[in-house]
Design a protein around this nucleic acid. Structure first.
Lengths: 127, 127
DNA sequence: TTCACTGTATCGCTACAACGATACAGTTGG
DNA sequence: CCAACTGTATCGTTGTAGCGATACAGTGAA
């Protein structure tokens, strides 16, 4: 379950943890009101500092997946699928906006990106 | 020409400079074999450290826009439009790949991104 | 009430990016 | 040849991200 954590990855530890938990929650591997492993439990399981786990949990909380209750634990929140979809759409928009901004500084237009996106999703050329 | 440089922007100074020069070169504001302003000239014009300008020039060199000649200056390179197009496509691909990788850690699929991209380029909903 | 568990807050360390200061080295016109 | 210009190399400073260590504070079952 949590074996795919790589300290040498360029992806920060807390992001790897958060990513793993995001799919776990989304796929109902944890159900609403169910507690996640405690900060220390998960930390020692992953051989990582508790603060690192906290950082991951905080992200999930900010995103509305879980709620951290001081002294009690960290619990999965019930979120209607529709709201979750909206959130996903919003995030997608934000990511794409930033992409376009970054690209424009490289002299790359949104149209360029759109066609690259097509190629990437449909696997048009050289995979 | 170079008045749009903002030290308080989250975008690094050297990137702002590089971005400005990229469009200048691409739009033939500087012609092939023509020298860019010297590192010190541009630095003092922008009230910025020469090293910062160097950093920008280096980026442009890495991208094949210009050539820095020790003791002589920094000169615009002649690049066939076709090669430049290829380069742009390649960069677009790379940017999109990274976007997809980042997004997947947020539980966002390439399809989500593609539709967000559509909305963004075509201005579908809420602008 | 107490104790063993929760999360929280506050440090410090390390690595790295951004930027600047300054000395070094090549080119070129007079 | 040499002076005045070019880019280059090497530092130091500052800010910040990632991660860890450790002390603080709330909760809940015995």
């Amino acid at each position: 379950m949590f074996d795919e954590i790589d300290p040498r990855s360029p992806v920060p530890l807390y992001e790897q943890i958060a990513a793993r938990l995001r799919v776990a929650v989304a796929s109902s591997e944890y159900r609403p009101d169910e507690p996640l492993p405690s900060v220390r439990q998960l930390a020692s399981l992953l051989r990582v500092n508790p603060s690192t786990v906290v950082q991951a949990y905080r992200d999930l909380e900010r995103e509305g997946f879980v709620e951290m209750r001081h002294g009690a634990g960290t619990f999965v929140l019930e979120v209607p699928a529709s709201r979750r979809d909206d959130e996903r759409r919003k995030q997608s928009r934000e990511l794409v906006r930033r992409l376009i901004a970054d690209a424009s500084r490289l002299g790359i237009s949104a149209a360029d990106l759109a066609s690259a996106m097509d190629a990437e999703t449909k696997g048009d050329t050289d995979e």
